[in-house]
Amino acid sequence: MIAFLIRRTMLAGLTTFAISILAFLAIQLPPGDFASSYVENLLGGSFFNTAGVLGEAAVEQQLREDLGLDRPLVVQYAKWAIRVVRLDFGVSIEHGLKITEVVGQRLLNTILLAVGTILFTWVLAIPIGIYSAVKHNTPADYGVTFVGFLGLAIPDFLLGLALLWIGFAYFDISIGGLYSTEYINAPWSFDKFIDLLKHLWVPAIVLGTAGTAGLIRILRNNLLDELAKPYVVAARARGVPEWKLILKYPVRMALNPFISTLGYLLPFLLSGSVIVSVVLSLPTLGPTLLKALLGEDLYLASSIVLMLGVLTVIGTLLSDILLALFDPRIKLEG
């Protein structure tokens, strides 16, 4: 087990290193460098007049030296990496703010939304999937399957719009966003957390519906395979009560794919939820990343990609470890 942990952690470290190189290279992609685009942007914005005092070229030169842009690429990477490890990601051109300030709150919101969505998905999908498999080919199963296909087929942004309209037209409330206006910039408190919970359920439902429907199908099919296995019959033959038997043996086996997909949840939510986040005006990273890419704000974009990459690696590592704890057969192979 220890050897397994060490090996997996080292692999995760290597993957992170590879992601960081890709993120760094992405910054280098557009013509010109950060200094020139920064200065260009400053002049365009014209709210900052250091350029007028020092002269464009001088500012550009100063920035180049500060960032080491005149040195070889490897040195630039090393300097950048050292800053990143100290959580200094640089400045966003678009926002004129430090990237940590732009991203921090949004990253937290994204993670909270991911956790909320997965909780919603699991709480709904696991019992329904089990019920559907145990009662397979009964009217109840057909009903669940039908609703499940509906959930899969409805685009989530449409569901979001519908919920917004229903909330507005019938209950006279606005259900967009993640916080009430008075809490948006407030420091964290218990009241803010409660306020978050009041808002979180709408996007969790909108984002989780398709996933729930998909998971119900997966769990039902996995469970149907497992229910016919001899060890289930053997457990029944020694008198284990039916529900206890189903939960202890086949359900535990059928849960493996749930755990192994935990790590992919974050990137999925980010890339899949941009439209929903725009529709429901959620302060998450998806729209920020989209804007950064459109505006060629590449320091911001690659910082976001890097952070999510690292979080995904950590998520995958955690799900691997959980899986190894959950299924004794995996240690041999891992």
């Binding site: 296995k229 001899p230 060890y231 019959v233 053997a234 457990a235 202890k248 043996y249 535990r252 086996m253 959950f326 299924d327 004794p328 057969r329």
Partner: peptide
């Protein structure tokens, strides 16, 4: 082979 649960 298969009459025992593989994870218990």
């Amino acid at each position: 082979m298969t009459s025992f649960s593989p994870i218990h």
